[in-house]
Design a binder for these strands. Structure first.
Lengths: 195, 195
DNA sequence: AATTAACACTAGCGCTTGCTTGGTTAGCCC
DNA sequence: GGGCTAACCAAGCAAGCGCTAGTGTTAATT
C-alpha cells in the first residue's frame, strides 16, 4: 500500500507541476509555487524529488509513456490497412495531445531545459514513438496514400499535429476525431475510410 | 547620422540578444550575459532598452516585420495563379524561417513570456501576416488544389512549416526551395508548377 | 512498548537576478 | 569654447532563487 500510494501521490504532484510549467514556463515556476499548489512547504518538495530538474523530467516522461501506450493500443485495434493505421495514429496523437495536454506542451516547449542526463533518458521513449510513425507513414506511402518522401511527410504531419496545441480549443465544437479526419483527408485527398 | 547609427546599433544589439534567447531561452538569459556579448556592462544595457521585456519584444517584432515584407515581395513577384501564389508563400515562409532563424525561434518558443502590452502590440503584425495566408489558401482551395476546410488547412500548413525549425538543418544538403516544393506536392498531389 | 520509515515543517544559507544610481567620456552644434 | 547629449561604467540594492540541515509527527511493524 505504501508503494501504491507513494506512486499515485507522486503522479498527482507531477500533474500539478505540469500545469504550472505550462502557465508560467519551467524557469519562472519556483519550487515555492509548486509547493503551494501541492499544499506543502517548499522544503518538503525535496523529499519527493531530488531537484527541480527531476520534476521536469518526470512530467515529460509521464506524457511520453502515455502517448506510446495509446498509440500501441490504437494500432492494435485499427483496421489492418495502411489507411486504417494512418487514421488510427493521427487520431491517437490528437487524443494524447488533449488528455495529457499539459505534459505534452511541456515536452514541446521546455525540452531544451532538460539536462543531458534526462534528455538522453527521454530520447529513447521518443524514438520508440517515432518508429511507430515511421512504419505507418511508409506503408501509407507505398499504398499511394501519401505523396513525396516518407521522411519529410512524417515530419510535416507531426508538425501539423503538434502545432494544434497552439490553436485547438478542446472546449470548442469540433471533436479531435473530426480534426484527425480532416488532416488525413487533406493529405490523402480522399474522405475517411468506411467502418 | 546619429539616428542612423543608433538604429543600426540597436538592430545589432537585438541580433545578439536573439541568439542568446535561442541558445539559453529568455528566462535563463541574464542581462549580464547579453551585455557581455554586446561588449558593454550590464548597466549600460538599460540605456538602450527600458527593461528586459522590451528586448524580447524588439527581437520578435524585427522577425515579424521581415517576414511580412518578404511575403509581400514574394507574392508581388509570383505567378498570378493560385498555385503560383501558394508556392511563393511556402517558399517565402521557409526562407524567412532561415534568414531570421533566431528571431523566429524566439517568437515561436518565447511568445508566452511577453507581457500583455507587448503581446497586443505584436498580435497586429501576426494578423496581417496570417491574412496573406488566408487569401492564398482560400484561392488554392477554390481552385481544387487543397482539400478540406481552408481554415484548418491553413493551420496545418503553418504548423508543418513552423515545425521545420526543430529538424531542418540549413547546413545540410537540402535547400529550402526543395523543401517548399515537397510540402506543396504532398498537399496538392501534383508536382511543382511549370516556370 | 520500542523501532522504523515516510512525510512534513522551520529556518535560513549562499548566490543570482533585474534594475538603479551617480558620475565620466567623447563627439557635435552654435 | 561652452553647452548639450548619447553612450558608457562602477558599484550596489532589494528581492528572489534552489536547495539543505535539523527537527518533529504520524502510522505501521516488530
Amino acid at each position: 500500500m505504501t508503494l501504491v500510494n507513494a506512486s499515485s501521490r507522486r503522479k498527482e504532484l507531477i500533474r500539478i507541476a505540469a500545469r504550472l510549467f505550462v502557465v508560467e514556463g519551467f524557469d519562472r515556476t519556483t519550487v515555492r509555487m509548486m509547493a503551494k499548489d501541492m499544499g506543502i512547504k517548499s522544503g518538503s518538495l525535496f523529499h519527493h524529488f531530488r531537484d527541480k530538474q527531476e520534476i521536469l523530467c518526470a512530467v515529460i516522461e509521464e506524457g511520453m509513456h502515455n502517448a506510446l501506450a495509446l498509440a500501441n493500443h490504437a494500432l492494435s485495434e485499427a483496421h489492418d490497412t495502411p489507411r486504417g493505421r494512418l487514421d488510427a495514429m493521427v487520431r491517437a496523437h490528437l487524443e494524447t495531445l488533449l488528455t495529457d495536454r499539459n505534459a505534452h506542451v511541456v515536452a514541446l516547449y521546455e525540452w531544451r531545459r532538460l539536462d543531458d542526463e534526462s534528455r538522453s533518458h527521454l530520447v529513447h521513449l521518443r524514438d520508440a514513438y517515432e518508429a511507430l510513425w515511421k512504419e505507418v507513414i511508409e506503408d501509407a506511402s507505398e499504398a499511394g496514400l501519401v505523396y513525396g518522401d516518407p521522411l519529410s511527410a512524417r515530419r510535416f504531419v507531426l508538425g501539423a499535429l503538434n502545432w494544434t496545441v497552439r490553436w485547438y480549443d478542446p472546449e470548442g465544437p469540433r471533436s479531435p476525431e473530426s480534426l484527425a479526419q480532416e488532416l488525413v483527408t487533406m493529405i490523402t485527398h480522399s474522405p475517411a475510410s468506411p467502418a
